[in-house]
Nucleic acid binder design. Structure first.
Length: 489
RNA sequence: GCCCCCGUAGCUCAGCCGGUCAGAGCAGCGGCCUUUUAAGCCGACGGUCGAGAGUUCGAAUCUCUCCGGGGGCACCA
């Protein structure tokens, strides 16, 4: 018998290897190429509610899945077969199968992938069951599965070996099915409303569209450094300039930051841009889209996601939370005084600039206390290099952020389309970068030239998919909703 | 980067106030059984107690270092 190189010889592994060898010795291929004609277990079990305990049928089904449990041995055994759609009890009888196939069936290991032809009936104890007429090993499992009762709970194993989590825990499978439904529903909403999906570069000569540190990589043939995108914003707006009036892209962004319950260095974001819309129209669309997605995927959590969502200015949100009126204190010194005067502690009132202090107030005093979805609107210009000046409030821009359950889930604005103003914003960012701000925007002349070509009035937004999935599945950690989250090495 | 907590059999856990403390259930192995279903009954196996160093007559247990994980802080469109 063979033992995998580098593995400590183990009785558990050796026993499975021995069975594998026995199958081959008996002329049975433990890894056949296909098993056509399988129906989902849920299909085989549907429509039999009327079947009485002890009642038989002649209805055959062909199912396949992973062997999850076995009860009883000898001349009759019950086994549980699991596929993505559900679980089905199998009954194996020696008088149906014959002694040799029965013996081989009893030698199957939990975790083996098995295909079954059988007849549906209800046992005396009342469980819908498939009587095994014939079966085939479809893939021998050479490693023991996680505990089938307790499942797999060790967090490290669950994240590093997600396949084990998936095969051991139904909730894990259901969650990622749900995630797929959410993404599909969102795409459907955008497709149905005239948006076209595009793909823009992940590897970018210049990064932009967000305030974040990028990952840097190197292209050998071109002999140049490239950045992994931190946002799709600038490319998408170039698409709008080109006449793709409604565009979206749903994909991964990468930010060179720490990990936390709401941060993963690579994460999924959808951004969409709509010509002739402003930030108010974009907010309308966000709340409607999220509401429809929630309904489409069967969301039934505690938070009410249906529109409309509350809208409150950043100024009001901060004031109602801690009494500080940031618009009444428009310079650093004055705001610092107000923060101290309000008895708030832990603020770096010496080093932080006015917009930075406003941002601090938002993330510390407001964001953690938000439960129901809310749009916070009208941000300081300095924090938003791509948002258009507010039509009536000097020093502010037409920007919103959507928050829910203590997390930011979306950020959008009336897009800045005045190329000269955009140039000035880049220059301001350059000054910040020179002053040591590692998250400042690099100057993107190609983008400014695109704006010079003429971009219609446009509203745009970025919506965090991972966080949306957290929201809709009630998970507290982004790592629960990302299949293979970043782990310390 | 800082602070706190965790790491015992394939899986889920107990033991941890230093001295039969190497334990249980499940899985696996052997035997029995034609209606089981938290995993039928009986039996025998199975661990370098995350790694290393130290204290001690004696360490899973106390101390330190390292590794891995979790939580919090800092940071974080």
């Amino acid at each position: 018998m063979t033992v995998v190189e580098g593995e400590r010889p183990s009785d558990l592994l050796a026993a499975r290897r021995a069975k594998l060898d026995r199958l081959r010795a008996a002329g049975i291929d433990p890894f056949p190429h296909d098993f056509p004609g399988v129906v989902p277990i849920a299909e085989a079990t549907a429509g039999w509610d009327h079947l009485q305990p002890g009642e038989e049928t002649e209805r055959p089904y062909r199912v396949a899945g992973r062997l999850a449990a076995r009860r009883g041995q000898g001349k009759m055994a019950f086994l549980d077969l699991v596929d993505l759609s559900g679980r089905l009890q199998l009954q194996a009888r020696v008088d149906v199968l014959g002694s040799e196939p029965m013996e081989r069936l009893l030698e199957l290991d939990l975790g083996d992938i098995v295909g079954v032809d059988g007849t549906i009936f209800r046992t005396r104890r009342g469980e819908l069951t498939l009587r095994v007429d014939d079966y085939a090993v479809l893939a021998k499992s050479l490693r023991p599965p996680p505990d089938k009762h307790h499942g797999l709970t060790d967090v490290e194993t669950r994240f590093r070996r997600r396949e084990l989590d998936l095969l051991a825990n139904v909730e894990a499978r259901e969650l990622f099915v749900m995630r797929a439904r959410i993404v599909t529903a969102l795409r459907r909403y955008l497709d149905d409303h005239g948006f076209i999906e595009v793909e823009t570069p992940v590897l970018q000569p210049l990064y932009g569209g967000a305030l974040a540190r990028p990952f840097v990589t190197h292209h050998n043939a071109l002999n140049r450094d490239l950045y992994l995108r931190i946002a799709t914003e600038l490319y998408l707006k170039r698409c709008v300039v080109g006449g793709l009036e409604r565009v979206y892209e749903l994909g991964k962004d990468f930010r060179n930051e720490g990990v936390s319950f709401k941060h993963n260095p690579e994460f999924t974001m959808v951004e969409w841009y709509e010509a002739y819309a402003d930030y108010g129209a974009v907010m309308d669309r966000v709340e409607v889209a999220v509401g429809q997605v929630a309904e489409a995927c069967g969301y039934d959590g505690e938070v009410d996601l249906s529109p409309p969502w509350r809208r409150v200015t950043l100024r009001e949100a901060i004031r109602e939370r801690c009494g500080v009126d940031v618009m009444a204190h428009r310079d650093r010194e004055s705001l610092a005084e107000a923060i101290v005067g309000a008895g708030l502690e832990g603020y770096d009132t010496q080093e932080r600039s006015w917009p930075a202090l406003v941002d601090d107030l938002l993330s510390r005093e407001v964001e953690p206390h938000i439960t129901d979805p809310v749009f916070i609107v009208d941000y300081p210009k300095e924090l938003s290099p791509f948002a258009k000046d507010h039509r009536s409030e000097p020093g502010l821009v037409e920007r919103f952020e959507a928050f829910c359950s203590g997390m930011e889930i979306a950020n959008g604005f009336t897009e800045l389309n005045d190329p000269d103003e955009q140039r000035r914003r880049f220059e301001a960012q350059q000054r910040l970068a020179l002053a040591g701000d590692e998250e400042a925007q690099p100057y993107d002349e190609v983008f400014v030239e695109a704006l010079e070509q003429g971009m219609p009035p446009t509203g745009g937004v970025g919506l965090g998919i991972d966080r949306l999935v957290m929201l809709m599945t009630g998970r507290r950690s982004i790592r629960e909703v990302v299949l293979f989250p970043a782990m310390r090495d």
